[in-house]
């Protein structure tokens, strides 16, 4: 499908695990700037694999890539060296994992500001300002502003997940990657996180992996459907859910398989 302002483009992206499993096969997709794009598909279809390639976390699993991942300014993510990759992850592409990952033994303040140490932001006022801003955007500030020096592990699951979002956006990345961020949360926490995502999309490009189709409908402007590593269909969310052009997509959204 046509996308006007692109934040990220993959061209024939294939990802192979060291055991030979091909997690993604020739996925070409253009992600629109400052919108929410959802990636849906049955379990094991390669959603996480795709997402983890966008910041090359898959390097850790020994994946081999083919094709290209281009950012708006032409940067090819797959061509970056180790140092450039750290800068990319620290400043341009944020990532939130499926399960919240608070750091044990760290206070909320320390936990959220961890990324700043990597890029050497140490000025106290600047750190505090970024902390406040990130927590506000993650819809967590009001809940924790009086207990910033409590341990981050003392927060509830939903709060921890928003803390992870705050940590991911503290350096104002252009792109935010979320891998099933609500899978361990209850409906209320999910609702909170979704409205936070919609707010973040005002000035971030958000790519969210979800197996919850209602969630994709609620938050995403565009939706991509992956099946067995291949991109089956990519369109505006309402089209995907009201008049999908592929039979496979139709079968999936009416629940013929999952």
């Amino acid at each position: 499908m046509e996308v006007e302002k692109k934040a990220l483009v993959t061209k024939a992206l294939s990802i192979t695990y060291p055991n030979g499993v091909e997690g993604c096969k020739k996925v070409s997709i253009a992600v629109a700037r400052n919108e929410v794009t959802a990636i849906i598909g049955p379990s094991g279809c390669g959603k996480s694999t795709f997402l983890k390639s966008l910041n090359r976390l898959n390097d850790e699993f020994g994946c081999v890539y083919e094709g290209s991942i281009l950012l708006a300014d032409g940067t090819n993510v797959l061509a970056l060296n180790q140092y450039e990759l750290c800068l990319l992850r620290g400043e341009r592409v944020g990532y939130v994992m499926q399960k919240p990952v608070p750091f044990s033994g760290k206070t909320i303040r320390q936990d959220v500001t961890m990324p700043l140490r990597g890029i050497n932001v140490t000025d106290k006022d600047e750190v505090n300002e970024k902390l406040r801003h990130a927590l506000t955007r993650a819809a967590l500030w009001d809940e924790v502003k009086d207990r910033l020096d409590n341990l981050s592990t003392s927060l509830s699951g939903g709060q921890q997940q928003r803390l992870c979002v705050a940590r991911a956006i503290i350096n104002a990345p252009e792109i935010l990657l979320l891998d099933e961020p609500c899978s361990s949360l209850d409906p209320k926490a999910t609702q909170l996180l979704e409205s936070m995502i919609l707010d973040l999309a005002l000035d971030h490009t958000v790519i969210i992996v979800t197996h919850n189709m209602q969630q994709a409908q609620r938050v995403a402007a565009r939706t991509a459907f992956l099946y067995e590593g291949e991109l089956v269909e990519y369109d505006m969310t309402e089209n995907i859910f009201s008049k999908p052009s592929e039979k496979l997509t139709r079968d999936y959204i009416v629940g013929k398989f999952s």
Binding site: E60, G90, K99, G118
Partner: peptide, 19 residues
């Protein structure tokens, strides 16, 4: 996951170990 979280916000592998 903690190591991966660190890598995801831009730490080098040495910084992941250290911090």
């Amino acid at each position: 996951e903690q190591r991966h979280a660190g890598l995801c916000f831009g730490y080098t592998s040495w910084e992941v170990i250290k911090w």
